[in-house]
């Protein structure tokens, strides 16, 4: 790559002309593309990974009922929070906890009074293999080499998992076996791809799989970890967006809330 040098002035001119032409084409294309998108009602939602598949499932209902288009960006709560703080253009934030949503209101980045708890998450210990059943003793099994969880500094499901590990008194024995996903989705992928034998994931993720692929799981008692109360807030960017308010109302509505227990959230 060091052998290739632009020595020829002609070449530079040619490249310049070509780039200019390309610029014109791109500008024309984007001028045509943008107004069309802006006509339809759109709501851009930053969603914590655990709720992503649920929201994908609710998308057809929302789009049919309201006529608005739903755009999802999934990530860890910590990452999305940082991005919103730096001006990411999201209308709604679906946190996996209450703290981050509350902090956005405190910082003036979310609309005061818009915050509500849209779901209470449940943690589960999971393997895609059909091994009969799992229980808390599975965590002390010598055959366990890698246990996946979400990074507790970034993701509430990771924090809940470390709560549980400490409540069970397994902090010491498991410390060398933990692998951290950047969010609960990556933790899930580590287990599903068999790179980790077990993982602490969201119950909603497991239930989003077809029944024959759900493997085995242990749902730990909810008292052993801090409840994963997940809050939604309307962000400043969505203040005057009718699609954003429609989405908030849709999510809070009785029929949608009534569907959540079957999808892996506490009633």
């Amino acid at each position: 790559m060091f052998l290739w040098k632009l020595s020829d002035a002609d070449m530079l001119v040619k490249i310049g002309l070509r780039a200019a032409l390309m610029g014109v084409v791109l500008a024309a294309w984007s001028a045509l593309a943008v107004p069309r998108a802006a006509c339809a009602g759109e709501v851009s939602v930053a969603v914590a990974t655990n709720f992503r598949s649920v929201l994908e499932g609710l998308r057809p209902d929302f789009e049919r009922q309201t006529g608005h288009r739903l755009i999802l960006s999934a990530g860890s709560t910590g990452k999305l929070y940082a991005q919103i703080g730096l001006g990411a253009p999201f209308d709604v934030f679906l946190s996996a906890d209450q703290d981050h949503a509350r902090k956005l209101v405190d910082r003036g980045l979310a609309i005061p009074g818009s915050r509500f708890t849209y779901a209470v998450g449940l943690l589960t210990l999971w393997t895609p293999q059909s091994v009969g059943w799992l229980d808390e003793n599975s965590l002390s099994d010598p055959a366990l080499i890698r246990l996946a969880l979400a990074n507790p500094d970034l993701a509430p499901y990771g924090r809940a998992a470390t709560d549980l590990i400490h409540a069970l008194g397994l902090g010491q024995s498991l410390s060398g076996k933990l692998v951290l996903g950047e969010n609960v989705g990556q933790a899930f992928a580590f287990v599903q791809s068999r790179n980790a034998q077990l993982g602490f994931v969201a119950l909603s993720q497991v239930l989003s799989l077809p029944a024959e692929k759900r493997g085995a799981r242990w749902d730990p008692p909810v008292g052993l970890y801090r409840p994963i109360r997940q809050d939604a807030v309307l962000l400043q960017a969505g203040r005057d967006n009718p699609a954003a308010s429609a989405f908030m109302a849709f999510l809070e509505s009785e029929p949608i809330q009534g569907r959540l227990p079957a999808l892996g959230y506490a009633p």
Binding site: A82, D153, L154
Partner: peptide, 8 residues
């Protein structure tokens, strides 16, 4: 670095 940025 990624983790530090994510946690501000």
């Amino acid at each position: 670095i990624y983790e530090q940025v994510e946690t501000l």
